[in-house]
Design a protein around this nucleic acid. Structure first.
Length: 878
RNA sequence: GCGGGCGUGAUGGAAUGGUAGACAUACCGGACUUAAAAUCCGGAGGGUGUAUACCCAUGCGGGUUCGAGUCCCGCCGCCCGCACCA
């Protein structure tokens, strides 16, 4: 063959050339008035942290493959890109490196835009925006005011992490082992009045509509369901035994297990419960306890992991179903004020947390649910609470009932008893989902457009006065929110009375920015947040792709936002994302110089891997010092196990990087970046190029119609058409690794066929070769678009491959007349038999039983059973 | 702690309940080469060993089924999220 003399494909020349051609032809600019059917592909937009990482390359390559494929299928495709540009890291950089968040952010965007362009993504850059652009956040302020006027905004108190030394609010991320990240001081909880979006108004709708999202991963829907956390229970009043410590007469608890009321042994209140606050005012011991609980911070994980502690209040309540008995009332750190009523009754036998608490404070444990088959006299609970099914016992009128029946009976019982002129118990549906606190005491975010007037109250900024611009002249020298100590920002006149008023200095959570950007992309330069008829034509997003780490918050908030924008007339859809795909991370081995905690992380570019006696070892490039190969982890700067996309593009080209991140691993799973893997991808790229060069040499001879009688020609045609069909299905299903494997197989088949054609080049064979090689080029085009363009040109095709329609499949080539079916005996493979497609049962039976190994095993006897799955498998049971 | 997921050769992985290991990487052998790289051809889950024969094998232990990597139950290990990171 001529391949040895073929010049290697040079991505450094070819890639910029085609990127320029696409740019000049405005290939990826999408017009809203294009009459073709719309298809909207969106990848989660990046935070401009500084540089693109391999996770971005993977995410955007996936979206790009789908976008280019859909484009070839004749859709008008919307595939935009922007920047989730507000947030904490910019402020951290400002504090640490004395740079302005704005300059830092826009510099990063410039770098990352250049990087993304070098990957050759088919993006409509004319629609680009950053959420920190005034043009974007001013529309967000307008949306906020609409939400406010529609009753979707509220103001209430909530807790924040407070650094007592830096005198500033900390994010959970900035709290490390209970201490502030910069000061090292123990963090405390503080209550602030903050702005909330009323997500909980939509709890039921957000839950129910999950059933309609059939193109979402089941796991994401399950996680959202659990997050919303609908539970039906009983709101129950416990009468306080008279005391001079409080004027309250009852405690209201919420429980999902009212059936276990006869097993109650205490009542516990959150440290934030009004009654505990009241007691703490006069009881230094209780005040100290409340302070202790507040030291845990606000992260749920930390609260849950903390040891369960409590303090007796000195109060008792009457047992609601055991006249004459009372229960002690405790303050406890594991009861949350945010859920239910901030008070529970404890039934230690049937709840693990209650049991832990009871054992610690020596409270009684009364089992009241008896598991099937247990002896009522002998059943006891040790260190593990019994939460399974069973029948009630030791419960008077509930005895013998199953749990659900007991819940109904006890609800009816309390519903008919009165206390303080209301029923003692009421059935109630509760959600774990809380309203969304969006206030942040930070500079680099979208200012909340509200004004506080002592006379007129809190009012929205009139829309004519929008935007509320972030001032540029801020200082990060003082702790706290720079907007708060800016000389002029907060001083404003009341829009109603004109008197002096105070501008809100909190900014919005950056999740607000990312909750509607998908809608903004449909008409990114509009004067209003959306142009509804344009947005409605594009939305919902057909395929949304991003990390599973966003499975709950970002996706739930976006779903809420679509509903809120619907209510306020900006959209006509409730669900923003019709299809969702959550891709895995890019992971890499870690390397350390020295051992254990003193080990110093080193990057893959600083080391060399050697194989000694079949064992992989790593050494430092310069010194040859041995390096420990550590675990495979998510690429992170701190562990230095990062591979810079720029370097990969420079060395191998964008197509190789794209091909590698799409091959091997299923897209929803993590992919391990390896040197060998990228080398393999690079070799395949050169192999395709050689195949094309060889084919184009052969195709200089006149070609004809493929000859159906030539077995090789027929085989390659079948392979080509089958691969086109399968790759299409795989791309639609985002199974890129399978698409890649199919393409490898076709390339292998073409290589073999090329040899056959070289040996005997008939016009018919040349026709078959031309068909196969052109299809191969079109199949790789979505994944390796630059190489595909070069190949397309080398094959003498007119125009760009990006503009060529997806190749048609000749269905008649996919139909086989016979099929080879495995034959099992008792489920184990023993033979194969080739049968006509759709063979009659009688024929299958006759053929199978006459097979030598089968006949031998049957030894003249008839099989017990013969399982025949037509055209799939035969199982002989003997 | 709560919630979700994953576990298959040396490695990444493939497999609508129907031939486990497609495809690739690494490896071994051969061709080409002064040599190496590249390229091309071939081999290969483990075991028994005349083998076209048999046994074992999808984290571990049970179950359902003619048939289980796949479904169910119970363990073990690893990963992700937990509301102010994005």
């Amino acid at each position: 063959m001529t391949s040895n003399s073929v010049e290697r494909y040079n991505p450094r020349v070819e890639e910029p050339r085609w990127q320029k051609a696409w740019d000049e032809g405005a290939t990826f600019v999408t017009r809203n008035d294009d009459p073709r059917q719309p298809y909207y592909v969106l990848e989660m937009f990046p935070y401009p942290s500084g540089r693109i990482h391999m996770g971005h390359v993977r995410n955007y390559s996936m979206g790009d493959v789908l976008a280019r494929y859909k484009r070839a299928r004749g859709f008008k495709v919307l595939h935009p890109m922007g920047w989730d540009a507000f947030g904490l890291p910019a402020e951290n950089a400002a504090i640490q490196n004395k740079v302005h968040p704005k300059g830092w952010t826009y510099d990063n965007i410039a770098t990352m835009r250049r990087q993304l362009k070098s990957i050759g993504l088919g993006l409509d850059w004319s629609r680009e925006f950053a959420t920190c652009d005034v043009a974007y956040y001013s529309k967000q302020q307008s949306l906020f005011i609409d939400f406010f006027n529609a009753g979707l905004v509220t103001r209430k108190t909530s807790k924040v992490n407070w650094d007592p030394v830096d005198m500033t609010v900390l994010a959970n991320e900035q709290v490390i082992d209970g201490r502030g990240w910069r000061s090292g001081a123990f963090v405390e909880q503080r209550e602030l009045t903050q702005w909330f979006l009323k997500v909980s108004d939509y709890a039921e709708d957000l839950l129910e509509a999950l059933d309609t999202l059939d193109q979402w991963p089941e796991k994401v829907r399950t996680m959202q369901r659990n997050w919303i956390g609908k539970s039906e229970g009983l709101r129950l009043f416990f009468e306080l035994v008279g005391s001079d410590k409080t004027n309250m007469t009852s405690i209201e608890v919420f429980t999902t297990r009212p059936d276990t009321i006869f097993g109650a042994s205490f009542v516990a209140l959150s440290a934030d419960h009004p009654l505990i606050k009241e007691l703490a005012a006069n009881d230094p011991g209780m005040a100290e306890f409340v302070g202790e609980v507040r030291k845990i911070g606000t992260a749920t994980e930390a609260i849950d992991k903390a040891e369960k502690i409590g303090r007796f209040t000195g109060l008792h309540v009457n047992h609601p179903v055991k006249p004459g008995e009372t229960l002690p009332v405790y303050a406890a750190n594991f009861v949350l004020m945010d859920y239910g009523t901030g008070a529970i009754f404890g039934c230690p036998a049937h709840d693990q947390r209650d049991l832990d608490f009871a054992r610690k404070y020596d409270l009684p444990v009364h089992p009241v649910v008896l598991p099937e088959g247990e002896d009522p006299a002998g059943f006891a609970v040790g260190d593990t609470a019994y939460t399974g099914p069973g029948r009630l016992f030791h419960s008077e009128f509930l005895d013998g009932l199953e749990i659900e029946a007991a819940k109904k009976a006890i609800a009816a019982h309390f519903g008919s008893r009165n206390i303080d002129n209301h029923p003692q118990g009421m059935v109630e549906v509760n959600y774990r989902l809380r309203d969304w606190g969006i206030s942040r005491q930070r500079y680099w975010g979208c200012p909340i457009p509200m004004i506080h007037c002592e006379v007129c109250g809190t009012l929205p900024v009139p829309k004519k006065d929008l935007p509320v611009r972030l001032p540029d002249d801020v200082s990060f020298d003082k702790p706290g929110n720079p907007l708060d100590h800016h000389p002029t920002f907060k001083h404003v006149n009341c829009p109603q009375c004109g008197g002096p008023a105070r501008r809100e200095t909190d900014t919005m959570d950056t999740f607000v920015d990312s909750s509607w950007y998908y809608a903004r992309f449909t008409d990114p330069h509009a004067e209003t947040p959306t142009v509804p008829e344009v947005a409605n034509a594009w939305l919902p997003v057909d395929q949304y792709i991003g990390g599973v780490e966003h499975a709950i918050l970002h996706l739930l908030y976006s779903r809420f936002f679509a509903r809120a924008m619907h209510k306020t007339g900006h959209l006509a859809v409730d669900e923003p994302f019709k299809g969702l795909f959550t891709q895995g991370m890019v992971v890499h081995e870690t390397y350390q110089l020295g051992n254990g905690q003193n080990g110093q992380w080193v990057s893959p570019s600083e080391i060399r891997i050697e194989a000694v006696d079949g064992e992989r070892r790593a050494v430092m490039l310069g010194t040859g010092e041995p390096v420990t190969i550590g675990s495979i982890e998510k690429m992170s700067k701190s562990k230095k196990n990062v591979v810079d996309p720029d370097e990969i593009v420079r060395t191998y080209g964008a197509d190789t990087a794209r091909w590698f991140v799409l091959s091997d691993s299923p897209p929803e799973r993590d992919v391990q970046w390896t040197e060998a893997g990228i080398e393999g991808a690079s070799r395949f790229l050169q192999r395709v190029w050689r195949l094309v060069v060889d084919a184009s040499d052969l195709l200089k001879s006149p070609r004809g119609v493929p000859d159906a009688a030539d077995a090789d020609s027929l085989a390659i045609r079948k392979a080509a058409h089958k691969t086109v069909a399968n790759v299409g299905v795989d791309i639609e299903g985002l199974r890129f690794n399978r698409a890649v494997a199919q393409i490898y197989e076709l390339a292998n088949a073409i290589a073999k066929f090329t040899q056959a054609v070289t040996d005997a080049p008939t016009p018919g064979r040349l026709g078959a070769l031309a068909e196969a090689i052109e299809r191969l080029v079109q199949l790789i085009a979505p994944m390796m678009p630059h190489l595909a363009e070069t190949c397309w040109a080398a094959l003498g095709k007119d125009g760009l491959v990006i503009d060529a329609p997806w190749p048609a499949v000749d269905e008649t080539l996919l139909i086989e007349s016979t099929v080879t079916v495995p034959v099992q005996v008792n489920g184990k493979l023993k033979a194969n038999v080739t049968l006509p497609i759709g063979a009659a049962r009688e024929l299958v039976e006759k053929e199978v039983l006459s097979l030598e190994p089968i006949a031998r095993m049957l030894d003249g006897k008839a099989p017990k059973k013969l399982v025949i799955v037509p055209d799939r498998i035969v199982n002989v049971v003997i």
